[in-house]
Amino acid sequence: MTLDEFRSAAESLRRDGPAQVAAAGTLDAWTEARNHLVGRTSGRLSELMTALGTLPKEDRREAGLLANSVKQELEALLDARHVELLRAQQQGPSIDPTMPGRADWQGTVHPVSLVIDEVVDIFRELGFTIALGPEAEHPWYNFGALNFPADHPAMDLHDTLYLDDLVLRTHTSPVQVRTLQQYPPPIRILAPGNVYRADPFDASHAPMFAQVEGLVVDEGITFADLKATLTRFANRFFGETKTRFRPSYFPFTEPSAEMDVLCGVCKGSGCPVCKHSGWVEILGSGMVHPAVLENAGIDSEKYTGWAFGMGPARTALARHGIPDIRILYDSDVRFLEQFAR
């Protein structure tokens, strides 16, 4: 080989090398390219080095410098490419960022429970704890202890499902009496739970539904306290609103009051939702009847109290725009999924 031929071979390697390095898209291809270009045994550079020995002595210095500079250039390119490929391998294959992420099933809380939770949270701020009681109940706890006169039209307000000598409780108020018998005042409790009525199952009635009961008993508890606490609840639950208290009747409270809030749709000016009254009924309440305290063995001269009860299902229907109460019971998974948070 002449020096010119050597030069030409070296320049050819310098010309081709970068393209081959750049074309190596994987680490395996890179190894192949490296072996082909600068491999110790069969690479093109090693061929040059072998040829170097065949050159006339006076040409070897120049040829050696040339071969060395080509080698350094190629190795620099190969190293850079190697780093690129390693980095790409760490990052994995390139992704199409518009493809969907991997989701898992999402659990949901029933809309009626969502309302109960909110009520519970608000009353917890006001120092209430949670009490529970049985759904199959003694008639005394459901009626007698709560001052229902025997065989009186007041009983017609509670169409009752019976279980031999028990009843399926018609309200959560029996928990009031159980709690008063078990714990001394001061009492501030909330009692959520299911209650039963012999109402046919239709778009607006269900034979079983949830109720939330509240009870406060201590010395010095007044109707002013009832109004203030329930108004505070209403403002927390519905956002700033107004409340209205109307005379009502429950055998176990006196004075008894229904609490209304401003209609959320018309803000009080009257619309079909509120039957043009401007108000929507939220809960029943009243001062605990002294007979109830006496029936639980509590001194009704010393202690006073107030209680309320509300139906979270009705609130759930209204706030979510659910037109038929039966949907709450059907448990259609497409319905339940709508309450994912």
């Binding site: 009492i187 501030r188 201590d218 109707f223 505070r232």
Partner: peptide, 22 residues
């Protein structure tokens, strides 16, 4: 009822613990 006062008073803590089943 609407003419009666509605003042929230300081209250004493309840004696009732949360029901364990709740």
């Amino acid at each position: 009822y609407d003419k009666l006062p509605d003042t929230i008073e300081a209250y004493r803590p309840t004696t009732v613990p949360d029901h364990p089943l709740y």
